[in-house]
Design a protein around this nucleic acid. Sequence first.
DNA 1: AGATTGACTGCAT
DNA 2: CATGCAGCCAATC
Length: 107
Amino acid sequence: MRIPDEKVWAVVRRIPRGKVATYGQIARLAGLSNPRHVGKALKALPEESDVPWHRVVNARGEVSERRPPGWDDLQRILLEAEGIEFRGKGRISFDRYRWKPEGGEEE
DNA sequence: AGATTGACTGCAT
DNA sequence: CATGCAGCCAATC
């Protein structure tokens, strides 16, 4: 892998419980040039990992659709378990749950 | 080696 | 607020 996927996982691990981050934020923190690579790293993420990949959402504040339908539904369940509230169709209130990277990681 | 795709983003309409 | 188009890098075909 040319892209430091472990770095991405490290950033995702830093996400406090009850908050979410966008691929762009993670990509920037991980030093990646393209947010798409974040998705690739998460795709290669082993399930035995303790990385809260479910806290990673797209810029619109909604869960991204993966290739196999149904997997994204699991993410929503996990987010609700974290205490995150969804809007009508499955969108998250960013103003409330957006994670502030290395600027005051409060929990 | 060239073309296509992919867990995306940002700005314009 | 939803939709459309372009940019981006790496992996895969």
